[in-house]
């Protein structure tokens, strides 16, 4: 139904956003409207969300494009983002509704592309679709 416009790289949707940590990353979208405490909610060895009350419990953020509102809680969550990267289970990129200091600083040292402030509701993107972030643009395939 969505015809490829530019050869096989054509996206179904182009969403303008503000990139906070530059670089590009692509992967399967993993979307949640619930906030994340990186220190307590994620198994840092596997990248699996372990918090029993979180709607993504049991799902892995490894190599995904993580789309979430923002991080909450502990100031040490920034180190948890870095640990995910060092353990090779970090998301390929992250997209926030409004990026916060914990996520931004963690992504900055882990070199994980991070964006926020898109002009559309990012939570309408479905988990599982392919997305690509780069140069202030989120492409949904």
């Amino acid at each position: 139904m969505f015809k490829t416009i530019e050869g096989n790289s054509g996206a179904r949707m182009y969403i303008k956003c503000r990139q906070i940590v530059v670089g590009s990353g692509e992967g399967e979208a993993l979307v949640t409207t619930q906030m994340i405490n990186f220190l307590t909610m994620i198994d840092l060895k596997s990248g699996v969300i372990k918090d029993e009350k979180h709607e993504l419990r049991g799902r892995s953020i490894a190599n995904k494009m993580l789309i979430f509102p923002n991080a909450i809680g502990s100031s040490v969550g920034a180190y948890s983002v870095y640990a995910l990267k060092m353990n090779r289970v970090a998301p390929k990129a992250m997209m926030c509704n409004k990026a916060d200091i914990t996520t931004a600083s963690g992504c900055a040292i882990a070199n994980i592309p991070l964006a926020d402030q898109s002009n559309v509701d990012i939570f309408t993107i479905k988990s599982g679709v392919k997305v690509k972030l780069g140069e202030n643009l989120l492409q949904v395939f």
Binding site: A78, I101, S105, G106
Partner: peptide
């Protein structure tokens, strides 16, 4: 601000 470990 509510700083992170890294921002502080």
């Amino acid at each position: 601000n509510k700083e992170s470990a890294l921002s502080a």
